[in-house]
């Protein structure tokens, strides 16, 4: 089942922050990971990730630094790794709670559960 673009667009920021929660990652790695975990259902356009990352960097939610790629993957090449900042973790917690409340409310309305 394909998700609507509005839903996908609205979820990019918390997903990116959540991906970076445990370790620094580079852009392509994030795209591959999302598509693998969602079995391609989110269908991220690869390019759309970068404006999001740059916006988050500009807001101080993530930081970036260039580092050598692992020698067994891409010898001699550099990649730009993104890490979540302290401010980014706070934002992620806020967004997670917001999503949880929102999904409960929508579920109650759409599926007939209690609010």
């Amino acid at each position: 089942m394909d998700f609507s673009q509005d839903l996908i667009r609205g979820s990019v920021v918390p997903i990116v922050l959540a991906l970076l929660r445990n370790r620094p990652m580079y852009g392509y790695e994030m795209v591959k990971l999302v598509n693998a975990r969602t079995k391609g259902r989110l269908e991220w356009k690869e390019g759309t990730l970068y404006p999001t990352l740059h916006r988050l960097q500009s807001l101080g939610l993530v930081s970036a630094r260039w580092a050598d790629a692992p020698a067994d993957e891409a010898p001699g090449r550099k990649r730009k790794y993104y890490s979540i900042t302290r401010k980014g973790r706070t934002e992620l917690a806020r967004r997670t709670q917001e999503w949880s409340q929102f999904s409960l409310s929508v579920n109650a309305l759409l599926l007939g559960g209690r609010l």
Partner: peptide
């Protein structure tokens, strides 16, 4: 191709980096 529409991406990159 997988990167997406160049014109749309160019605009998004500009919007994302304007402040910076």
């Amino acid at each position: 191709r997988a990167l997406g529409d160049p014109q749309e991406l160019s605009e998004q990159l500009w919007q994302a980096n304007r402040r910076r």
